[in-house]
Write a protein that binds this DNA or RNA. Sequence first.
DNA 1: TATTGTTATACTCTATAACTATA
DNA 2: TATAGTTATAGAGTATAACAATA
Lengths: 144, 144
Amino acid sequence: MSETARREHTLASRLRLSTVRLNRRLRAQSADSTITLSQLSALFALVQGGAMTPGELAAKEGVQPPSMTRVIAALEDAGLVVRRAHPSDGRQAIVEATEAGYARADEEVTARERWLDSRLAELTPDEHEVLMRATGIINRIAGS
Amino acid sequence: MSETARREHTLASRLRLSTVRLNRRLRAQSADSTITLSQLSALFALVQGGAMTPGELAAKEGVQPPSMTRVIAALEDAGLVVRRAHPSDGRQAIVEATEAGYARADEEVTARERWLDSRLAELTPDEHEVLMRATGIINRIAGS
DNA sequence: TATTGTTATACTCTATAACTATA
DNA sequence: TATAGTTATAGAGTATAACAATA
């Protein structure tokens, strides 16, 4: 292994471990809620991006269509989104957040992401900036 | 929501999404291997940190003991680690990477984390530095 | 009694393959 | 035929609760 490769690998190991750990912590915050992390993420995407098809939503969240099907079904069961017929293409559907969905997204922001929000509030402006830049780099790496 | 809170929350959303995405990509790389991401991570910890008890390993990886039990069992089945009796405490065990485990860890580095390594190799030194700092901040947030 | 570890059980998240309906 | 979406199935990853063995 070359020196450069070893240096890259040190970062790879660190990045892998910190990613896995934060992911775990984020999911752990879900414990006392009826909505899961994936569902919350999709709901946010709909609230912020407006109505869209399941395929568009899957692409936006970076998952395969079958995975999104289940997420949408759960949100629909909870009354947080509705499915409408596409005006010109019978194969497609339009998924949209309901009024309850918008309200729920607001609640979750204040109640559920409080853990991460408050951790981030403890950071210095400099550290804040590092994380903002890091998310951009990571998204590029992950091909979003 | 205050201005500060909104700014924090923007970062929270970005960080959450990029974390979930990278985690997904990292796991996807496992597809053609017989060893999973969790197992690889634990094996690395043993190779780098030397023999330790299941409890220590669970703490190091930030998972609960029952989760680590399964990971160790899988690694043991694959012949990559062995379990020895603790010299002075019959309740505990010592888990240690075998020669095959060390060899496998090396192979996985070159074969399996190549995806992440090569992505990271495309970064500028500055971006590299940002990610190094970010992993430190994230680990602090995640309480490792 | 307290600690270490395992077993039992269950849930989230995600994927691929196969299928249906529409274009 | 091609595309959008769903259903079926399976596996990774993790947790909590209950238990066994040892200190």
